[in-house]
Design a protein around this nucleic acid. Structure first.
Length: 272
DNA sequence: AACGGCAGCAACCGCATCACC
DNA sequence: GGGTGATGCGGTTGCTGCCGT
């Protein structure tokens, strides 16, 4: 895109800087960069930009490679496992996106940052509280995260059952009805088990992680998390929800993640 | 069909830090 | 120790596509 072409046009003779392109990358540019790195590997990005023939800054090349072209970059929906990790790590480290991204194989800091800003902050706004407020942190810690844990566990169990019943790989294609249908675009989890296993199984060249439900089940993170959680009975104490009917705290309420947020929003209004 | 509003996301920008001379 | 260029990081911008009117 030639966004700044007009601005850059002047009477002065064109310099090398004037030739620099900005905006979205074209397929040709992507190929040029990929081919160059395939032959020469990553190096100094300014020389990559110069020598590859791209009319881009080194910075732009680096960003394009790291966030999009790198072979181990994973695109697509953030899985419940990843959501859980993001919530937890963000509560520890705040907006240290690159640090958080290091714990999510194949995800980039940019992607996580965008997820946080577009999804999480949006819902915090619906809850009428700041994303960094204690109220929102309590809601995520005592309500959202346990629910995500439950979903991951359920997905893991469900996957095992399906494997036991029907054997091997064709089940990847199946659509599960166990979780109900969903058009919840904010999480896009029509079939959490398939999505989770798919995402994590495919992922991560150059990483030892294999973040399937199994991984989660066996991980220390899972154990640690369970230990740090209050018992479900104490949710209402933590959140001040006297008389909160926990009988409705079941799968039926949370068939869709947007439902989950809807309930949080409703609860949030009751709390505030 | 045309338009406007909005959400999502790729890309840019500015600053901080690092590495090298 | 200071200067300079390269890289990393977080915040912000603006393009694109979707959806409702």
């Amino acid at each position: 895109m030639e966004l700044h072409d007009d601005a850059r046009r002047s009477d002065s003779p064109p310099s090398e800087e004037d030739d620099l392109r900005k905006g979205p990358w074209t397929v040709e540019e992507d190929l040029l960069l990929m081919n160059y790195i395939a032959v020469h590997r990553e190096g100094r990005w300014n020389s990559v930009a110069r020598c590859s023939g791209l009319k881009r800054t080194g910075k732009s090349c680096r960003l394009r490679w790291l966030n999009y072209l790198r072979p181990d970059v994973r695109h697509g929906n953030i899985t419940p496992e990843e959501q859980l990790l993001i919530f937890e790590l963000h509560s520890r480290w705040g907006n240290r996106w690159s640090k958080i991204a290091q714990h999510l194989p194949g995800r980039t800091d940019n992607e996580i940052k965008n997820y946080w800003r577009t999804k999480v902050q949006k819902h915090a706004k619906q809850l009428q509280c700041d994303v960094n407020s204690k109220q929102f942190k309590d809601i995520t810690r005592y309500m959202l995260m346990p629910r995500l844990m439950e979903r991951i566990r359920a997905a893991s169990v469900h996957q095992h059952e399906r494997i036991a019943i029907s054997g091997t790989h064709e089940l990847v294609q199946e659509k599960s009805s166990a979780f109900g249908s969903s058009d919840a675009e904010s999480f896009d989890m029509q079939d959490p088990s398939a999505a989770a296993s798919d995402c994590f199984a495919v992922s991560t060249q150059g990483s030892d992680h294999n973040m399937t439900g199994d991984w989660f089940e066996k991980s220390q993170f899972s154990t640690w998390w369970l230990e740090t959680l209050p018992s479900p009975e104490s949710y209402h104490d933590v959140l001040g929800l006297v008389g909160f009917d926990q009988s409705g705290w079941g799968q039926s309420l949370f068939g869709m993640d947007d439902d989950m947020w809807f309930v949080f929003t409703t609860l949030g209004r009751r709390i505030s």
